[in-house]
Write a protein that binds this DNA or RNA. Structure first.
Lengths: 131, 131
DNA sequence: TGCACTTTCAACCGCATGGTTTACAACGGG
DNA sequence: CCCGTTGTAAACCATGCGGTTGAAAGTGCA
């Protein structure tokens, strides 16, 4: 819990076993013993993995009668997705601006004048595309 | 290296410093010393982080004259995004099916009145199919 | 040439992690 | 009531990781 939420989620998903658990849980809830079946490790190890996923908020274990199910919580995936999309969007915006600059240079090449200066930072024009 | 690509990317992003580096690089390339400025750690530590990001494919260091720039590679983000979206989509598909079942049960409830206290959860209806 | 900066390599420390084993508390059904 | 399954907890071990320091190459420039 010491680490921030995002770090916990990324760290939880950095393990192939845990990723496989999440993948299988995305098909539906499961009991722990059922979840553990495919893995060549002790049940306790599976509980430990589950604990990590739970601390990361990726999974919940609703209380109730004995074989408590394990349920995937989609909000944690959303958290990561938001982070990734934000930065990917920035990179792609930069790419578009770069394309624009490149296009300008091509035009300049055609116009071959001695009009050199004033190319400061291309930080303009919020294009209202994408959204 | 031994770990699969996905594990490497998730692990790389599980560190706040590395995540901050990626965030800043999404605004544009930077030299290592420039990148290192905000952090209270040795330059070598920064190089180590960079190495992790590079091994994960999140970053590249195009060769050339001395202060080689650090460049964000967006493909690794795409890799993660694909994984996340796939499983999130599955969960949401299940939710929609569940909503359908719940809707059916509601119809039944109307048909045969309630012979028992409402043990169901208060959040019955929800979004029909929205986005 | 020499100096400063960049980059990498290696050893080391403390701590977290993935796994084991052992033990033990609850719960549920025969 | 006992027994098997379920769930936690603890000690332990090997490995990896984030950080340090120290040292050494490579590179650019005055």
């Amino acid at each position: 819990m010491t680490a921030d939420a995002l770090s916990q989620v990324f760290a939880a998903l950095a393990d192939p076993t845990r990723r496989d658990m999440v993948a299988r849980l995305s098909e539906g809830d499961a009991t722990v013993s059922r979840l553990a079946e495919p893995y060549a490790m002790s049940l306790q190890a599976v509980y430990k993995h589950l604990r990590v996923l739970e601390d990361a908020g990726l999974v919940s274990r609703p209380p109730g009668p004995q074989p408590r199910p394990v349920r995937l919580e989609v909000e944690a995936l959303d958290l990561m997705d938001t982070w990734i999309e934000r930065h990917r969007a920035r990179v792609e915006r930069r790419y578009r601006r770069l394309d624009a600059v490149l296009a300008d240079m091509e035009e300049d090449e055609h116009a071959q004048d001695h009009r050199d200066g004033h190319r400061g930072r291309p930080e303009a024009a919020g294009h209202p595309d994408g959204a």
